[in-house]
Design a protein around this nucleic acid. Structure first.
Lengths: 334, 334
DNA sequence: GTGAAAGCGCTAACAC
DNA sequence: GTGTTAGCGCTTTCAC
């Protein structure tokens, strides 16, 4: 690989001048610049990013640490990030932590060691990882999940309100014993959605026993097991609110296996939309999140923080929207 | 951030010794090593990967360039890669090319400039990108999609055979006019699956007009439009074979919108499994690919190539498997 | 506007 | 087994 010195020699200038041309900085005489360009083409010169990174003390890459690449929720979020990043001259790489705090820590360490230009993170765990980044001066934005104990720019959705809407909708549809398949207790989104569920029940004076709540792992399998537990233990609910998309799928699977018909004998509303929600029979009522916007907003915040590292952190909360489809349509009792 | 010299001073040794301790290379006296460890802890020393990368002339990161992060096919493939990478001491970052050759080229350029330790690529385009990597000496493995005109380690599935099985299954189920929703003509996987479709039809002396073939973009929307075209133009088919998972979903959506019942009036078989295939009603018959194994195998090949750069490239082909579910179950005509 | 020179933080000969 | 030394390829003062 040709170095900047090879180009300099070929063009009969100094390495500094080549550097200026490459980076479009300072003013270089037009004729000289042309000669440099020519030399670069002849030698198929590609700047060595490693050297540049060392010198500049950072890369031009953003790391996006997501907690489950298998969740379609992240798909369009990532697109939103990419579209902004590209416009701002950054590349985006994805790191999949798989809801595993150790894996997440490894990726954060890598981002730190590689001196990534910025990190957008949907954290599986506590504040330690995020604080590590902040202390090292790496610009960070938390996305989807609030990070308690860290002063960090954050983009969220109104989880509690979304959950409340979902459960109110089930109540208004005439369901009476509404259960909840909650997410991992440690995750803020799970806590907020559970609160929304409880609030709606209390507001309408419905039973809100703990017996009606089971916790899953935000995965399909967890939704299946939570649903099974709700069916097998105690008095059976006639509707469920599931706190994320994959668990909703798992719950439906369980109901199908047991031959329990939705929405007649069990109303279902899920949190998070899924691209194929209307293909599932019956089509699924969901609390949809503005995923693309979520990504876009996080990327914009990151760009702003990079430009102005000392500004106070801000939190942006985006609205969810209840999409009523067939799975919550209780046949009226004649 | 503390540097290696700070640690050396603190421990009363040379930077070289610290480096040896950090990298676990060569033998360092136990007592000295302990002092160094201690100093590292005291200073919260983190090696600067940028400097190390420059010196070593490569990072310890593998880039995985995938063509559509929204396709669940890639999910478990990536897990397969990650599991091997981690064992071999590499981090994995994902780059989403979105089936866009220009975006792919940008990521390849980034991988080159950042001197990634290796690249696993599911290429959206032609050989140029892959050859660029090979010429620069970056170890590469092609995954899922063969790259013509590049001598590169490759992991594939038996697309043609899988498609053939799918179509034969439809024939045996009693369907008569079997259409195909093919993928983008330029993609080898699409070509192979189309060939398998045609071969099965010819072998059973069924009509194989071009009128029965439409091409989509491997996205849901493309599947929807191709299905609509098949329904609206010419003689209507009674079964379809769709060349990938997202297009299958799109086709089903179209059929649902038109009120055409599956499998009675239209048999459906898709290529690529989807995690929720059995939740879609009717449950979906698919040609399943060993996605995790695909990723694992690619990662192993990459590790081997890194260890032995000059060995001749090899191609591994994994088997697909037909999973018969309800969508291809034609009611026998009494 | 351009060049000389120093150095980012690390590793790997090489000498001892 | 340990230290000295010379870069990796680039950017950026600082002179001119």
């Amino acid at each position: 690989m040709a170095t900047i010195y090879d180009v300099a020699k070929q063009a009969g200038v100094s390495a500094a001048t080549v550097s200026r041309v490459v980076n479009g900085r300072a003013s270089v005489d037009t004729a000289l610049a042309a000669r440099v360009q020519q030399a670069m083409r002849e030698l198929d010169y590609r700047p060595n990013a490693l050297a540049r990174n060392l010198r500049r003390r950072q890369t031009s890459i953003w790391a996006v640490v997501i907690s489950d690449i298998g969740n379609p929720f992240f798909t369009s979020m990532v697109r939103g990030i990419e579209d902004v990043a590209q416009g701002a001259g950054y590349s985006v790489v994805l790191c999949n932590s798989d809801e595993d705090a150790a894996k997440e820590a490894r990726y954060v360490a890598a981002a730190l060691e590689e001196q990534m230009a910025g990190v957008i993170i949907s954290s599986a765990g506590r504040a330690a990882n995020v604080n590590r980044l902040i202390e090292a001066g790496t610009p960070v934005v938390a996305i989807d999940r609030e990070v308690r104990g860290a002063a960090v720019d954050t983009v969220l959705v109104d989880n509690e309100h979304g959950a409340e809407l979902a459960v109110e909708h089930l109540i208004e549809a005439g369901y009476e014993r509404i259960a909840c398949i909650g997410g991992p207790r440690r995750l803020p989104t799970a806590q907020q959605r559970l609160r929304g569920y409880q609030r709606a029940l209390r507001a309408h004076r419905r039973p809100a026993d703990d017996e009606l709540v089971r916790h899953g792992d935000y995965r399909q399998e967890g939704g299946y097991q939570a649903m099974a537990a709700l069916l097998d233990e105690g008095e059976r609910p006639d509707a469920i609110f599931a706190a994320n998309n994959l668990m909703t799928i798992g719950a439906l699977e369980c109901l199908a296996d047991r031959g329990i018909s939705v929405p007649d004998r069990m109303g279902v509303v899920g949190f998070d939309d899924i691209p194929w929600a209307h293909l599932v029979r019956p089509s699924l009522t969901t609390v949809a999140q503005p995923t693309y916007e979520l990504g876009r907003t996080a990327a914009l915040l990151l760009a702003e923080r990079i430009a102005e590292p000392s500004r106070p952190p801000s939190t942006v909360t985006l609205r969810t929207e209840l999409k009523v489809r067939a799975s919550s349509n209780r046949p009226s009792v004649a």
